[in-house]
């Protein structure tokens, strides 16, 4: 295989995942959080495809395509929620949305 070994790709994927997790944890706007979730999903996609290359079969790529489809559906629902919140003039701040506190 030319170029870096699969290990490098997986480490890169891990870094992407962690960056996405950080974004989810430290941002207050639901939009940015949703984008960070996308980054996390992309990170795991990269890992899947890297492992598919390592194993020599395309099953990992199939998985990655499925993940993409699911991510798309999730973004639809998430954006729908955000639009609904915007329509009702709810402030787009996760820290203020605490009705489910125990």
């Amino acid at each position: 295989m030319h170029g870096p070994e699969v290990t490098w790709y997986v480490v890169l994927a891990a870094m992407l995942f962690v960056i996405g997790a950080l974004g989810v944890l430290v941002r207050r706007s639901p939009l940015i959080i949703l984008l960070s979730v996308e980054i996390m999903l992309n990170g795991s996609n990269l890992a899947l495809i890297a492992f598919a290359r390592h194993v020599g079969r395309e099953d990992g790529q199939i998985f990655a395509i499925a993940v993409m489809a699911i991510a798309a559906s999730e973004v639809v629902v998430g954006l729908g929620l955000i639009v609904a919140m915007g329509r009702r003039n709810v402030e787009l701040d996760v820290d203020k949305l605490r009705t489910l506190r125990g």
Partner: peptide
């Protein structure tokens, strides 16, 4: 598709998304 949708929603929400502050706490 997905990113276009994102951009559309951001544009639609307009002013409401101007400030996306960092987390407090």
């Amino acid at each position: 598709a997905v990113m276009v949708m994102f951009l559309f929603v951001i544009a639609y929400l307009g002013d409401k998304t101007d400030q996306a502050p960092w987390a407090s706490g």
